[in-house]
Nucleic acid binder design. Structure first.
Lengths: 343, 343
DNA sequence: TTATGGAATCGTAACGTTACGATTTACTTC
DNA sequence: GAAGTAAATCGTAACGTTACGATTCCATAA
């Protein structure tokens, strides 16, 4: 009962009385084989259950058929940012449909982000990488560029290096959310950010300030804060907000977990979402509309983002002469409420 | 600016005046090289930035350094079962720490589950697979066994084939949940299942019926139903339950999404969780305790399950003579409530 | 001095694929 | 019928690694 390996080119060639070369060419629709031969070879390959051995092909061509996404995974057992799931799903499915396999590699929190990337590159087992969590002066694009290694970025940095990137229209979304709260008569609108100094927060802050100005509201630095990626941290931050002398009457939440934390904080303070404090959230899982009975949800389709990232990466690998793409993904605003019958 | 490839064995050999063979042996601590030589080789390899080419190694040894988990991913854009995220995280991190890469392959809903598996096997790009969503008479273990291909299963089937599997103690958990509801004076306890006919549902039903019997309660088939993996389906099912002539006063939810659906259904019916209907949920993300203000949560550590799956798979690959492991993972019961300050 | 044996190192082949140049076959044209 | 040409096919080499048998070297014993 030992491991049986699938048929290879030489077995097909022997079976048909052809050379390995001809079989190889026939299978990839090379123009130099006789149509009859091609048909015969392809029939035999199908019948014998031939699948190309990727190691052999990789050794010869340098292409492995693997893509790697570098994501920050949760190592401590606490609740992870669930928006990663649709992103992973989108990337995996798009890769699979294009004949690639997608591996996820995790950054290690204590580690320099560059060395994690280097580990992946040097293993030589991937054709291209997707990098995430871009920061303003991110060193990774330059590193990848210097190696001539195909990559795409999820999110923008301020580094002037040509590469494809897919980003979320964070500025627009924050601006729209703030404007909607102002239109709902909020006068003290708080903005929840996730981490300090990354590009996402910078853009969201821009949109927020722009909307405040348009609505004729003052900017109050004490209403802006970063609350990290956990429910507990969000709850702590919102609780502090609510204890201010002039607490907010509107809150732009950063994501699902930020919303959860905010809801817990409101419950503890005896306040009601949608009444004393109105909430808007940026959501990527569809979860928020089921827990939030308030103004609405900005739905950001990260499954689509994952698909676009993979497609851009494959383009960078297979057609390097094409110019890089820059896609800015907007959000769909969904009003919510208990009466909404949709999923 | 073309892609620079890292050093290979022959470059190191040339640089040191040794043969490729000796360098190869020195780097993997083979016993036949002189200690001085080994030290020299390893120093040179480190200095020249040598990393083994995985394609070359794979071609020679048949080992690729890749593991594949076959999961059902969401292709329709609807909210996916978020419990997959901690599972993926646990698997990915454990694989990474052991020097493997983990790819996720998705089953295609319309497709025969076997052909998806075959596609993965035949690609020859993976050393072992993790299969999930086991059903009672699952054909996949026999298929994998016949090929001599290393694999582990998440969940048990009733097929008598020796292989490692990691399972959740679904029977115990459902029994404990039902018992707790009965102890909280519930007399009509409903059981939410996910899909019909899989092993998980079978075990949960067993535990549920056992607990009912112990508590002296009658089994009512109309209180047991399967509600699929979406919030909407759960909501529809719970709504139907609540419209029964004798509606339940207790509900054992299947997972986070089942809970969400139940909460929406309760709100719509004007009922309060923890009052007219008491809830217990099986949770793997830590999310439930933030939305549920009721009896409690059975927390199932799927990050750990993912880690155990990968470790068992690596054992099956590297040490096939070892007997397979069967691990049954229990749950930790966490009482919840607004006054609970933990994350 | 010559066997003996063990330690250290080397050379060759092979894994399955593809690129490239060489070779055969069949058909047209003079 | 011979020469020329295009189409079809073939043989060889190479990617980087490891397994295996062969070989060298050196110290010790006969």
């Amino acid at each position: 009962m030992s491991r049986q390996s699938p048929a290879n080119l030489s077995q097909i060639a022997r079976h048909l009385g052809l050379s390995v070369t001809t079989v190889s060419r026939a299978l990839k629709n090379g123009p130099e084989v006789h149509p009859d031969t091609r048909a015969k070879v392809q029939a035999a390959a199908a019948e014998m259950g031939y699948v190309p051995n990727l190691a052999g092909r990789a050794l010869r061509t340098g292409r492995t058929g693997n893509l790697t996404a570098i994501l920050p995974l949760e190592t401590q057992g606490s609740l992870s940012d669930i928006a990663k799931l649709p992103l992973i799903e989108g990337m995996t499915l798009a890769a699979q449909q294009a004949g690639y396999a997608l591996s996820v590699a995790s950054t290690i929190p204590e580690e320099d982000p560059q060395s994690g990337l280097l580990r992946v590159l040097n293993s030589g087992s991937t054709d291209g990488v997707i990098i995430t969590r871009m920061v303003s002066d991110d060193p990774r694009p330059a590193l990848l560029r210097a190696r001539g290694f195909p990559f795409v970025a999820f999110g923008r940095s301020e580094v002037a290096i040509a590469h494809s990137c897919i980003d979320i229209a964070n500025e627009d979304i924050a601006q729209d959310a703030t404007t909607r709260l102002a239109a709902a008569s909020c006068r003290c609108i708080a903005l929840q950010l996730l981490v300090l100094d990354d590009h996402v927060s910078k853009m969201r802050l821009l949109g927020y300030r722009h909307a405040l100005k348009s609505a004729g509201l003052d900017f109050r630095p004490d209403l802006v804060g970063h609350s990290g990626y956990t429910i507990a941290a969000s709850e702590a931050w919102v609780s502090r907000l609510l204890a201010l002398p002039e607490p907010p009457d509107g809150l732009v939440c950063a994501n699902e977990l930020g919303l959860m934390g905010a809801l817990v904080a409101l419950r503890r303070a005896g306040l009601r979402a949608g009444r004393e404090v109105q909430l808007i959230v940026r959501d990527s899982t569809g979860l928020s509309r089921h827990v939030l009975d308030d103004i609405g949800v900005h739905f950001v389709d990260l499954t689509l983002a994952g698909r676009l990232l993979v497609e851009a990466l494959i383009a960078a690998i297979e057609r390097p002469e094409e110019p890089p793409v820059h896609t800015l993904l907007g959000a769909r605003f969904d009003p919510v409420g208990v009466s909404d019958p949709s999923d």
